[in-house]
Amino acid sequence: MLTLRDFLVRGLLAGLIAGIAAFFVAYAVGEPPVAASIAIEEAAGGHDHGDEAEEAAAAADEGTEVPRPVQSTVGLATGMLVLGTALGGATGLLTGAAMGRLFSRTNVRATALAVNGVAFVTLFFVPYLIYPPNPPAVGNGETIGYRTALYFAMVALSIAGAAIALALARNLRHQIGSWYAGLAGVATYVVIAVAALGVMPRYDEVPAEGFPPSLLWEFRLSSLLVQIVLWGVIGVVLAELSHRAVAQKAAPRPTQLIDA
């Protein structure tokens, strides 16, 4: 019997695989600009050793406890695998919940890809438009609390917008058909996202000089690439695993019985 748990397990697996892929991309494409940024940071004497002890966590202190060669390999891999697995599990659950209800009534692959596409745009891409990632050496350690709060607030607004848009599209489906309901949903999300992007406060902590613009671009592009690979791999692997699960566990039954 197909349950939500089947989708959770497949999502976690897809996320683990995606985390591995994201690690390789991050290591190959992201680490060079990170290393170059840290070199600039250290050349500029970015270490504020006189900071208050409590603020140590927020201070721009690199490599005091964990050596840089560990941060850029095992550390990077840990972050990518943990985040990938967590996001994969979440989209696995969402795909299971959405199956037969949202995006497609007949094709679970389409549902899985759509869930991951929506998650990429909602969780990463729209927040990226207003709060793009910064490399080491860019950013004032004293504003980390403010910037973190803004970032997660933007993610929350984006999730709320997507939830409203999906609910609206689902309710309109019977009246105007799937296509127009889908367009109405996209339009709703765009309006909410643009409003949030317009209202949320902005900041720019890129130093006026001393940090090469091309390096900033390289870092931000590599970050985008990491996320595209992460969500793309989760989407494709989850689509395939979900399809196989449905084919194995659900298709032979002429009528669907939902029991425990």
């Binding site: 690199e62 840990t78 972050g79 950013g139 973190t148 590599s222 970050s223 990491v226």
Partner: peptide
């Protein structure tokens, strides 16, 4: 520090 590079590259404020 352990997850530092992943945090930067995944787009979180660090």
């Amino acid at each position: 520090e352990w997850v530092h590079d992943a945090r930067h590259l995944l787009g979180f404020p660090c």
